[in-house]
Simulated assay, not measured.
Amino acid sequence: MRILLVEDDESLASGLLLALRRAGYTVEHVQDGAAAVRALTDNHFDLVILDLGLPRLDGTEVLAALRRGGSAIPVLVLSARDAVRDRIGALDLGADDYLVKPFDLDELLARLRVLERRRVGLPVNRLRLGELELDLAALSVRWQGKPVELQLREFMLLKRLAEHPHKVFHRNELEESIYGWGDGVASNAIDVYVHHLRKKISPRIVETVRGMGYRIGQADVADAETAEPAAPADTAP
């Protein structure tokens, strides 16, 4: 999931960037409200973490502009404004959640997982497709009931594909999902990660759609989802 962090406190932002990236998120950071509006206009994000007390343009104005433009992107407000009227005001403007500073990092991550589950329609932190199971909280994978050791970006790529099992992703979409603005991206990076996933899980776990991109392996998913139960044993004497 690609997140835009809008926070003017450099120390707090630095810590959040590190923690969120370790938790498997791709995160971009801007420090003022005007920059946030530009970033949201020019780029695709899956979620926004938004401070309210921002220079140049207050966070409430950013939120209002976002909703006036018809965007339904989830917004988690992270603010030192702890009055009930501030929380109600932000929620009525269209915020999806509101967390008061100072906050516990684990609680922030849990709230992000809730918004993430809601975005893709999951009731719990587990994503199952056939014999593939992803634990979104533990960043772990099981295939045919057995654990699979993946590097963080391998997990991020697999998760992105599995969240939308019928979508074909272009290479640049996948790069944006797992790399930030400042990251150097090798021209064959996605190919390398796909190769690793096929080697570690199954040769069919990621399907190449010629001339278009990649999607989660339809055959493996379908095999497990449509398999008929075995016929009962003949117990006749």
Rank of each mutant, 00 (worst) to 15 (best):
I3A: 01
L4M: 10
E7P: 01
E10N: 14
A19N: 07
R21F: 06
T26G: 04
T26D: 00
V27K: 00
H29M: 06
V30P: 08
V30D: 11
G33P: 06
G33S: 09
A34H: 09
A35L: 15
A36M: 12
R38H: 15
L40A: 14
N43F: 08
N43L: 04
F45P: 12
F45N: 09
F45A: 01
V48L: 04
I49T: 06
I49V: 11
L52F: 03
G53T: 01
L54N: 00
R56I: 05
G59K: 00
V62D: 09
A64P: 12
L66N: 02
R67G: 13
R67F: 04
G69F: 00
I73R: 05
V75F: 07
V75Q: 02
V75A: 05
V75L: 02
S79F: 00
A80E: 04
A80N: 11
D82P: 09
I88W: 06
I88Q: 10
G89R: 03
G89C: 09
G89I: 00
L91A: 03
D92S: 13
L93Y: 10
G94N: 05
A95C: 00
F103V: 00
D106Y: 04
D106C: 07
L109V: 03
E116W: 14
R119F: 11
L122D: 14
L122A: 13
L127I: 08
R128T: 12
L129K: 15
G130Q: 12
E131K: 15
L134W: 11
L134T: 10
D135K: 02
G145D: 04
P147E: 05
P147H: 08
E149M: 13
R153A: 04
F155I: 05
F155S: 10
M156V: 02
L157C: 10
L157M: 05
L158V: 05
K159T: 12
R160L: 04
A162W: 08
E163Q: 10
E163K: 11
H164K: 11
H164I: 08
H164A: 14
H164Q: 14
P165G: 09
K167H: 02
F169W: 03
N172R: 13
E175L: 05
A186Y: 11
S187P: 08
I190E: 05
D191S: 13
I201Q: 04
S202N: 09
S202E: 02
S202P: 07
P203S: 04
R204M: 13
R204L: 12
V206I: 06
V206P: 09
T208V: 07
G213C: 02
G213Y: 01
R215I: 07
Q218H: 13
A219T: 13
D220V: 15
D220N: 15
A222E: 09
A224N: 09
A224L: 03
E225W: 12
E228S: 15
P229I: 07
P229A: 08
A230E: 14
A231W: 15
P232S: 05
D234N: 08
D234K: 07
P237I: 06
